[in-house]
Amino acid sequence: MTDPPKRKVHRLVPLALLALGVAGMAESSRLGLGAPVQPGPGMWPLLVAGLLCIAAAVLLFVDDRRDYEPWTRRSLVVLAGLLSLVVYIYLFAYLGFLLASALMLGTWLRLFAAEPWKRTVPLALVGSVALYLLFEVALKVPFPDGLFALAGGQ
């Protein structure tokens, strides 16, 4: 079993959960707890956040370091993938489904799947058109029009 490089890093996760629990409890009590006979909006979240605090506090001590995967260079690929998804959402809103999807499919196929261009381009084009037909035409999802509307698509 390979050891993760830093010994204490894995304690950060229970700490973050504990912080979330404490914040949850604070916000719940602000919401109003009500009386036991008629619990207010904050009562249930308070109980739940309390449960989270207990579990997180225990995890601070019992969490098994072997549960944690090492971070590798490929973890950066995943972060890049996440970032590209955020970019996609903005493109989707401003360029419309078809254009944004073709661009993103192309990027993902080339970068993440490492497909050669001769397969990337046709797959991206055919794929985005096929999904456009499926969602917009067949399932009647009103996608943002974007630039496609200017091109006379709608």
């Binding site: 999807s101 196929l109 993440f112 799947a113």
Partner: peptide, 11 residues
């Protein structure tokens, strides 16, 4: 390949 499946699934 998994990369192709992943790309399409994301979309």
């Amino acid at each position: 390949r998994q990369g192709i499946i992943a790309s399409f699934t994301l979309l």
